[in-house]
Simulated assay, not measured.
Amino acid sequence: MKIRVGFGFDVHQLRDNHPFVLGGLTLPHTKGAFGHSDADVLLHVICDALLGAANLRDIGFQFPDTDSALKGVDSKLLLKKTIELVSEKGYSVSNIDCTICLQKPKVNPFIPEMKAIIAGILETDIDAISIKATTTEELGYVGREEGVSAYCVCLISG
């Protein structure tokens, strides 16, 4: 059996009156993450961690922001395609651990639903998905609500 670890980091700017998509959900907030796709920073870091673990480069390589067909794409589709690529290499998810960094909104009430969405896409047990959230105590771009970032580490085996 082979096991591999992957790591992901992503950041998106926040804009007023823009939808805030996180973990496959649209959260109620006055600001939202902006990007070429739906800017779901959580799903993006999971994609990056999985792609890195399987030595498949990164999300920007697999799903470039120069591809007009991906403009506004639902990141759940990107995660589905990512796990298909990882599976083609003979790997499956052992576990995923993520941390979201944002000042507002509070995401703790939404974490169980996010975990269920992600586990469903990855076809893995919900217990294999860990999502945590933290603020930066009002410091930096996260604290000023100018952006949101996320980190992810994953373990795949095959």
Rank of each mutant, 00 (worst) to 15 (best):
F61L: 03
V142E: 11
A150I: 05
L56Y: 03
I111A: 09
I126V: 12
T26L: 05
T136S: 13
L51E: 06
V148G: 01
Q103C: 00
V73S: 07
H36S: 10
A133Y: 09
Q103R: 12
I121M: 12
A53E: 08
D67V: 08
Y141L: 10
F9D: 03
D38M: 10
S94E: 14
D97G: 00
R15D: 01
H36I: 09
N55P: 00
K80V: 02
K80E: 15
K115P: 02
G72L: 03
R4M: 08
I126Q: 11
T99Y: 10
P112M: 05
Y151A: 12
T135I: 11
E113W: 01
E137N: 14
P28A: 09
E138D: 12
D65K: 15
I121G: 10
L155Q: 14
G6T: 11
I131D: 00
I100K: 03
T30Y: 06
S149N: 04
P105K: 08
R144G: 05
V41H: 01
L77K: 15
G120V: 07
H12E: 02
D40S: 09
H29Y: 15
G158R: 07
E123V: 08
N17T: 01
Y91V: 03
V11P: 00
G35C: 02
K71W: 07
K132A: 09
S94K: 15
G72H: 06
Q103H: 07
T124E: 02
I131W: 04
G32V: 02
K104S: 05
I121E: 14
P109V: 04
I59T: 15
L42I: 03
M1C: 03
G52S: 15
L85C: 03
D97L: 01
V93Y: 05
V73P: 01
I83E: 00
A150T: 01
Y141G: 00
G6D: 12
L85P: 04
E113Q: 07
R144E: 07
I100Y: 06
F7H: 11
K80W: 12
N95R: 15
